[in-house]
Design a protein around this nucleic acid. Structure first.
Lengths: 193, 193
DNA sequence: TCCGGATTAGCACTTGGTACTAATACCAGT
DNA sequence: ACTGGTATTAGTACCAAGTGCTAATCCGGA
């Protein structure tokens, strides 16, 4: 018994996690055991066969693609909106949004939520950000639910320029504020037919 | 001949693009033809079998996962860096970064490139953005290669605060500028041992 | 020396195919 | 009505990568 069974099974799991494309035969060569041993190991560990593994990996892709497509238009989920006035979106921070080193959310995700909310509230085919000023007040961690509130500043806006202010909070504490000067092509005086 | 062959093959392609998990048998039921006909159609259209389809879809996932992991730390690729002084990164804008409606890059991608470059140039375990002011000067389109240059403003910086300026250009034309006030935990006076 | 877990071998069977051949079906043109 | 050509269907042998099961073999320790 070169490598104890237990250790081999552990490595098997790791190998397949890294590369789910390995067949039993390839694995048997890798571990210097027979194909049958590999099968028994997979059975004991509850690891499905190659075809099943690929199926689940592929399924994960499709899901991710759909998700990234829909979540690309607006970062965060809009829960309330009154066009040209105000809007609210929710964004759940997870592991992939934070720095590995300190667990703090990367600034651009907070910006993305705020910016896309500013775009969405304007209901214009060509609303673009021209200038913006941001303040990151408190660090945001994985697991936090960030609620962003956008308010269109009517007073400072004119035909071509609209000012949107966004406040993002986590548990009622403001973590981020942003001021966005937006450019709009649509003539605002002709709007609201 | 209910549906002409040509049309059926077109639909077949669409079906499989949306859902690569369909077996020939399921497809034969969907189109009310024999399994053999489906096989001939796939052959003529050069569409591989189920297992091969899943393999490529799964491969795409793995690639994307690796890519997103490495590209998550820094948005864009750093091509030159002198710590605490300056840095340059390149970011190729593709279809997934732009608004579908007008083909213009979404602001948060430009911000992400600039912001992560500002973080990278500081070489600090806990460099966080506190405040920033952005100017989006020209629209950026898919296919554009954005070059961001970050410069640390030594004069305005002190122990706890560092100012970084980022200029992003496309073909020598400035498309974006950002000023980042960064917070650093490491005591700068004790740095550079 | 004998027991028991670990390993290996062998065989039948399954899925979802390929590759190939042969039989129909159907429609148009003459 | 006959013929030709395309489209479709059927059937067979075979493959990869398995599952499930039984049986044989190995090997190490009390």
């Amino acid at each position: 018994m070169r490598v104890p069974k237990r250790e081999r099974q552990r490595q098997l799991g790791i190998s397949l996690e890294q590369n789910p494309f390995l067949t039993d035969e390839e694995l048997s060569r890798q571990f210097n055991v027979s194909v049958q041993t590999i099968r028994l190991d997979r059975l004991e560990c509850g690891i499905p066969e190659l075809r099943e593994r690929l199926k689940t990996v592929a399924a994960r892709t499709m899901e991710a693609e759909v998700k990234s497509l829909q979540s690309d238009e607006v970062i965060g989920e809009i829960v309330d909106i009154e066009l040209d006035k105000r809007a609210i979106s929710i964004f759940d921070v997870s592991e992939e949004h934070v720095f590995q080193r300190n667990g703090i959310a990367r600034g651009h995700h907070l910006f993305a939520q705020a910016n896309s909310l500013a775009v969405a509230v304007l209901d214009d085919d060509l609303a673009l950000t021209v200038t913006s000023t941001l303040h990151f007040l408190r660090p945001v961690k994985a697991g936090d639910r960030v609620i962003a509130r956008a308010i269109v500043d009517k007073d400072r806006s004119n035909d071509k320029r609209t000012f949107v202010e966004v406040f993002s909070t986590v548990e009622n504490e403001t973590v981020f504020t942003g001021e966005f000067e937006m450019y709009q092509t649509t003539d605002q005086s002709r709007r609201k037919s």
